[in-house]
Nucleic acid binder design. Structure first.
Length: 284
DNA sequence: CCCACGACCTGCTGGC
DNA sequence: TGCCAGCAGGTCGTGG
């Protein structure tokens, strides 16, 4: 489901609502997530206090008082729900993991497609964890600089869109914000990364701006993104190209085009994001 | 090594 | 109305 702005929105909501809570009961309805919920899950987290909720890339890190954190990813369709102590909650389909706190609040992990995960990891092992160790820099931190981006793009022949979605190059950019950032830069998504490297400075600024703006709007809501309060984000109202096939470009009114790149939809304006090699008709 | 693709899942939409 | 193909915000393992 979510890219960096959505995950960060969830993080903030969780940190506000469950920090300081003590886990007094745990129920796992379905362990078959992307990484199976381990058998010892319940025992390991019972009695622990939530110290804080942090984030690395699109992973949420729920800091516990003991030796563990809970490492969670929302996949495509995962969400967390915080149920206030005053509310009687009726379970719904795909509520996989359920924590009850001493205060009476509850935290529920729900994920229809089960591409997400939630699992305990020893704090000491977190940095070297297989899921995290190959991740690139955070896009809103200084390590992700225009020069860094230029160097990384120069080394790759893959399409620039694939490059900026590669979590080893930079984390947090998914299909939506890749499309939006490339539009903002005026780069054709199919252009090889090494050719796009000359525009690295502008692309860098676009990635940062798109993620910042989305975060300021509370993330994007498509089918199933809700923040902790169950409210939608608003950034989807600002999409320039994503999901806008056949609609007029906001800049030049040319029809937005959808193509498929490595199995995913890419949306772009063929006029604003022209690339000489792809303007001709498809060769037969 | 680099890159593209299929697999992993369920649910929704649109066309017939 | 019902069915089926196609599509969905991510990531990983494989094979060319």
């Amino acid at each position: 489901m979510p890219e960096l702005p959505e995950v960060e929105t969830v993080r903030r909501g969780l940190d506000t609502h469950i920090r300081g809570e003590i886990i007094v009961s745990v129920r796992v309805a379905n362990r078959t997530l992307r990484q199976p919920v381990p058998k010892e899950f319940e025992k390991r987290i019972l009695g622990q206090k939530i110290e804080a909720v942090s984030r690395r890339a699109k992973y949420l890190v729920i800091q516990l008082s003991g030796d563990d954190v809970l490492l969670s990813h929302l996949g495509m369709s995962g969400c967390f729900k915080v149920i206030p102590e005053t509310e009687q909650y009726t379970p719904v389909a795909h509520d996989h993991v359920w924590l009850c706190f001493e205060s009476g609040k509850q935290l529920i992990y729900n994920d229809p497609r089960r591409f997400g995960m939630i699992l305990p990891v020893k704090k000491l092992d977190l940095a070297q964890h297989a899921l995290l160790e190959h991740l690139g820099p955070e896009p809103l931190e200084p390590a992700f600089s225009p020069l860094y981006l230029k160097r990384m793009l120069e080394a790759r022949k893959a399409p620039v869109k694939a490059a900026i979605m590669d979590q080893e190059l930079v984390v947090g950019v998914g299909n939506i914000y890749a499309c939006e950032a490339l539009f903002k830069t005026g780069l054709n998504p199919r252009m090889p990364a090494c050719e796009a490297a000359s525009k690295a400075k502008k692309l860098h600024a676009a990635i940062v701006a798109v993620l910042r703006d989305a975060l300021a709007s509370g993330g994007s809501s498509l089918k199933d993104f809700y923040n902790i309060e169950g409210k939608t984000g608003y950034f989807q109202h600002h999409f320039a190209v994503y999901g806008r096939e056949n609609a007029p470009c906001t800049a030049c009114a040319t029809e937005i085009v959808r193509i498929t790149q490595s199995g995913r939809s890419t949306f772009f304006c063929p006029r604003c994001q022209k690339w000489p090699q792809v303007t001709g008709r498809a060769k037969k």
